[in-house]
Amino acid sequence: MKKVNNDETQERANNEAQFIKLYHSVMQKQDFNLLQKYIICYIISYQLQGKDFYMTDETIAFHCGTSKSTVYRDLKKIKPLMNVTHKSTGGKSNNRRFLQMKNLKDWISYEVTKDIKVDVTKFKTIPEFMVWGLSIFQSQDIFLQYLTEKNLLGYFGNLKAA
C-alpha cells in the first residue's frame, strides 16, 4: 500500500477505516475497472449505514494503495452515477464533497437492504429519516416494508414533524 506523508490524512483514514462489502452486482459490471468498482462499493457501504461519504481523493488513494491522480481520474468517470454535494464546515479548507450513488436499487437488490442495521436514534426529524430511507430504498412501499419487518414504525412517534 502506498504511504501518504500527510499525517492528518493518514489519521483520518485510520479513524474512518471500516469493512466494506463488495457487492456481486457491482463487481459484475464490465464498464468499470476494479478501482471504480471498489469506490462504488465503498460509497454504497456508507449509504446503507446511513453515513455520509466525504473522503477526499487523497484519503481514498490511501485506502486503495494508489495515487491521488488515479482516484481523481476514476472518480471522474463514475461521477455521473452519483449525487455530489459540497458542504462547507467552516472555511475554504473545510469544504467537503459528499458522494452518494444515484438509483441505489440499480446497484443492489432489495434482499441486501434487509440486512441494513441503522441507528435510528441519530435521526431527529421525520423528514430527515424519510430522506435517508427513500435514498436507500428508492420506493415508499419498500421503505415501509423495511420499517415493518424491523419493527421501526413506532420510532416515528419519537421524532419531531419538522
Rank of each mutant, 00 (worst) to 15 (best):
R96V: 14
P127Y: 05
K87V: 05
S109N: 14
N94F: 04
K105W: 14
K114Q: 11
K117E: 10
N95Y: 13
K105E: 15
K114Y: 06
T89Q: 11
P127E: 00
S109M: 15
S109Q: 12
S88E: 08
K117L: 09
M101Y: 01
K122W: 09
L104C: 10
W107D: 00
K92P: 01
S93M: 09
R97W: 03
I126Y: 05
D115M: 07
V120G: 06
I116M: 11
V118E: 00
L99N: 07
V118H: 00
K114D: 10
T125M: 02
S109I: 14
I108D: 00
T113F: 02
P127G: 03
K87W: 00
K122D: 09
I108T: 01
T121E: 14
V112P: 00
G91I: 00
K117Q: 10
T121Y: 11
K105R: 15
K102D: 05
V112Y: 11
F123S: 12
F123T: 09
N94T: 08
K124F: 14
S93H: 10
T125E: 01
M101Q: 01
D106G: 02
E111L: 10
K92D: 04
P127M: 04
V120P: 14
V112G: 05
L99Y: 15
V118P: 06
W107E: 02
G90M: 04
K87T: 11
Q100Y: 13
L104F: 02
L99I: 11
Q100C: 09
F123N: 07
Q100H: 12
H86N: 12
L104N: 06
D115S: 11
K117R: 11
I108R: 01
Y110T: 12
R97S: 07
K124A: 09
V112A: 15
T89W: 13
D106N: 08
E111C: 07
S109F: 15
T113D: 02
W107A: 01
T113I: 05
N103D: 14
S88Y: 05
G91N: 01
M101H: 02
G90D: 01
K117D: 08
H86S: 12
S93P: 01
D119P: 03
L104T: 12
T121V: 09
R97A: 07
G91C: 00
F123Y: 09
K105Q: 15
R97L: 10
S93Y: 09
L104A: 03
K102E: 07
V112I: 15
S88D: 10
Q100R: 13
N94W: 03
S88Q: 09
F123D: 08
K117Y: 07
D106C: 01
L104K: 03
D119M: 04
N94P: 11
V120Y: 14
L104V: 13
I126M: 06
D106E: 07
F98L: 11
F123K: 09
D106Y: 04
N103S: 15
F98M: 04
K122G: 06
K87M: 04
V120C: 13
F98Q: 03
D106V: 00
E111R: 13
G91A: 00
R97F: 05
W107Y: 07
T113Q: 10
G91Q: 02
M101D: 02
I126D: 03
F98T: 06
